[in-house]
Amino acid sequence: MISDITIGQYYSGTSVLHRLDARVKILLTVLFIVIIFLCKNFLSLALMFALTAVSILLSGVPFRMFFKSLKPILPIILFTAVLNIFYIKKGTELLSFWVITITTGGLATAFFMAVRIICLIMCSSLLTYTTTPTDLTDAIERLLSPLKVLHIQVHTLAMMMTLALRFIPTLIEEIERITNAQKARGADFESGRFMQRVKAMIPVLVPLFVSAFRRAYELSFAMSCRCYHGGEGRTRMKQMKLHLSDGVSFLLFALVLAGVIVLNHFFGKLI
């Protein structure tokens, strides 16, 4: 059913990673992505893999959660791996058959790419698993606040994002309610050809949009009744402060970056 969809994916906990400042986590995630693309050989990749593994262990989020986030990406990983195996012709030839040639270089690259993608997914899931959606949007707002200079309404964008996240569960509930009501009138969502099924959604979508607009109006009235006037001069309930652990994690990432550069320089390049 629809209600099975996990939203925001937050996995509550009290680990070091949960307690890190959300801004720091976002920046470190970006940094992680940059570093992993700098990796040129298996040693530097292994270093990044170790960093991912340590972070996962520290987070206390169970492994099955990561497998779950990996599952939808699996076809892509396999697809790129297969392409790499068949198209890269480097190193010694292992197998040659008709137009297909498999080389050690191809296998190595395929493995390298797969590990890289897995690390990427793990790392970004780690961010969403350990940070609540509200903290995330809050952090994004602050990180983007320099854009105010360009007259971009960062606060408004962040508020819209927060509201959108807040209303996803509400709208899912609404969809279920309307679907039930239309089913009670004999609506059939399960059978028929594709176009018929799309048409069958109209009795659900129209009331859904109507109620979404109604909610939006009501919410905006409620907000203006409480004197909401945008981000100008607005203070915050939760102040974000950097702690020692934030500094330490930056330092750790700097060391890892240095390590990757050194490993890249002193050991051979794979790609």
């Binding site: 309610r177 309307i178 039930n180 009501a181 239309q182 009670a184 009138r185 109209i202 009795p203 659900v204 129209v206 009331p207 109507v210 109620s211």
Partner: peptide
């Protein structure tokens, strides 16, 4: 068995 839910006006489309 015809069931009419709470606030049925929200199902008009």
């Amino acid at each position: 068995v015809g069931v009419c839910f709470q606030y049925p006006e929200y199902q008009l489309f």
